[in-house]
Design a protein around this nucleic acid. Sequence first.
DNA 1: CAAGAAATATAGCAATGGCTATAAGTCGAG
DNA 2: CTCGACTTATAGCCATTGCTATATTTCTTG
Lengths: 138, 138
Amino acid sequence: MTEIDGQVPERFARAREAQSVALLEDYVEMIGDLISELGEARVADIAERMGVAQPTATKAISRLKREGLATARPYRGVFLTEEGADLADRVRARHRTVVELLVAVGVPEEVAELDAEGIEHHVCDETLAAFEAFLKSR
Amino acid sequence: MTEIDGQVPERFARAREAQSVALLEDYVEMIGDLISELGEARVADIAERMGVAQPTATKAISRLKREGLATARPYRGVFLTEEGADLADRVRARHRTVVELLVAVGVPEEVAELDAEGIEHHVCDETLAAFEAFLKSR
DNA sequence: CAAGAAATATAGCAATGGCTATAAGTCGAG
DNA sequence: CTCGACTTATAGCCATTGCTATATTTCTTG
Ligand SMILES: [Mn+2]
Ligand SMILES: [Mn+2]
Ligand SMILES: [Mn+2]
Ligand SMILES: [Mn+2]
């Protein structure tokens, strides 16, 4: 009990915090992808790729704007701020590393891709560094 | 685009589903722990260990009851159904495996414990099996 | 260039998971 | 046995993230 009080609640709090950021991370990464692929990110495309209804995407974009990660011209497109673009790049790189790590320990490619979508948001910088070191040293 | 449409939305939907189950998993695992350690699981202890306010724990317990994972005698304790106890056991084992896997690839013990709390919920059976195989074959 | 079609925004609902404040039940000390 | 302290339940608030229905804007086409 002595070692539990404080540590376990802290652990759960960290997981909750990671979760609240996860949605932002997935949206900025995907908006970045759309801009790269199509030259712009339209709400309809964002919603389709996220697998949600269009108003749900619009609402998420509002949060991105509020948090300084994106801007939008009504009835036009969505754009990433510098901060948003930086985050997108980091998230994309982390996603790849997580998939590679999973594959490296024997997870089938397609399964790794599925699980990584959730796992990635809970991989802290230190863990990410360990993953990269492990991948290099094989 | 051809390979993206359908696959990516599916991936995000899976991560969302995993997330909606995560809270249930953490509660049943922890209630099982409390019953083992203290002989009973009281709302106050559950709330303290989860790091949330007591009414938040009470509300979560309502959901556990609704989903058939727990029962409760008002003003007494919380108990796991057979289904809840089974889930708790599986979740506890998976948690340990995830921590071990992280440590095995070079993540420091304490960091592994922190990240595992979130990661575990996104590790599917197939990935878990791969983790176990990797750990055995070292 | 005017409809009509398509895209986007807005309104409003529900469930979830936080919180504080307070009511109600339990239990132990005197 | 009762009363005060502790525990638990309940009420009611807020934010988030889904949804459908509908209004509004933009775009395209005849
Ligand atoms: Mn993701
Ligand atoms: Mn991702
Ligand atoms: Mn967990
Ligand atoms: Mn756990």
